[in-house]
Design a protein around this nucleic acid. Structure first.
Lengths: 206, 206
DNA sequence: TGGTCATATGACCGCCTGGTCATATTGTAG
DNA sequence: CTACAATATGACCAGGCGGTCATATGACCA
């Protein structure tokens, strides 16, 4: 956690530092991100940085936590419907909310993507050890529920497909944002529907 | 390309260097891999390294090229069947061959994975600019072919699903190797079949 | 033996890293 | 105006990086 000195800072300065840091961690992995560049871009002295944060890690984790809070703000309303909604409809809404989040907070989204691309690094392992893949657990229970409701085939490997569904989220998000539209666009619903149709019925010609 | 001096080296020494380098680039991204560690591990002097290779990049590209040649050795027999095989069967064979490759050449597989996780880095962009996503082109034409044959629904976004099929390859590979079996195991065929069934018919209960 | 050429070596270079710390500046309360 | 605490600063540190180069070693031929 940042030191109290950081939270005593005038709003404007604090935001400037967070913006500079977010830009850095969105552009570089944790290891390659540079404290020197962050302080240069935010116009503070190197020494000041260490008056505000324990170390580079401290700032990084703070940003990650902020990003996850903002993302949860988008996801929570749909997650609350988990018991009542049809599985595939819920999935479409969750994927849609995640893309919405990424469009409205591109830096936070890049931060998360950068972390997901750091598999095998010490920092990734540490974070995953702490959070124990909560997302996968969530989707696994969702899947199990859908099987019990008769919405989903019972012969699937639940953990594997839970894993898949999580990864597909970031895949479809990245594809949509890079190849279809960067801002809000009515092709979003269309793309999501076509994707969910695939998850439902596969690719085979009927 | 490595310099001729490198190829004049006694087989044993050359392999020792390649092994050390492969281990390094399998464990660290290109940027974080260390020439110092490579020379230390292979027992040669720093100066010698630069008698053998132009620079770190030179060695890295050489390893990547070797890895891709070995991988093509596994894939080529199946790719040759592209015109005659059923789309889904072909896909299963290709995914299977890729997993076989990863099991028999884990270091090469890690090297490739590490590269795929470097999206956004200069080296990744450079490699992708040079190879223009050949894999995606291949699967796109495969998909189009399958549509023409009536094997696959005609209403899909071909580039998007080509993209998806490529990414799913690395996904299913990583999942199988990390969560199911690290060596050859009869669960491979079972896992592949269940996965291909999903690609065909989706998750919905019939 | 002496000469020539390929190869091997590690000290060294400039640069960047995350992090520290003595000092200077500022704000505030008495 | 003083005194004290909070904050701001950048020179500095040790260590790692990729890469260079003068020199040493070794192999081969005359």
């Amino acid at each position: 956690m940042p030191k109290t000195t950081f939270f005593n800072l005038p709003e404007e300065k604090r935001q400037a530092i967070l913006d500079a840091a977010l830009e850095e961690f969105a552009a570089y992995s944790y290891e390659q991100a540079s404290v020197n560049r962050i302080v240069a871009r935010s116009g503070i002295a190197k020494g000041s940085f260490y008056q505000y944060f324990e170390d580079k890690r401290d700032l990084y984790f703070y940003l990650l936590q902020q990003a996850s809070e903002v993302k949860m703000f988008y996801l929570a309303p749909h997650m609350a419907q988990a018991q009542t909604q049809n599985f595939f409809t819920l999935l479409r809404d969750l994927y849609g909310a995640a893309i919405q989040f990424a469009m409205e907070h591109p830096r936070y989204a890049e931060l998360g993507k950068r972390l997901m691309d750091s598999k095998g690094s010490a920092i990734y392992d540490e974070i995953m050890a702490a959070h124990a893949d909560e997302a996968i657990e969530f989707f696994a229970s969702l899947l199990q529920n859908a099987i019990d409701q008769g919405e989903v085939r019972a012969d699937i490997n639940v953990p594997m497909f839970a894993h898949l569904i999580v990864s597909l989220n970031t895949l479809i998000m990245a594809y949509y944002l890079e190849h279809i539209a960067r801002d809000y666009d009515d092709r979003l619903l269309e793309t999501l529907d076509s994707f969910i149709t695939f998850l439902r019925h596969g690719l085979v010609a009927s």
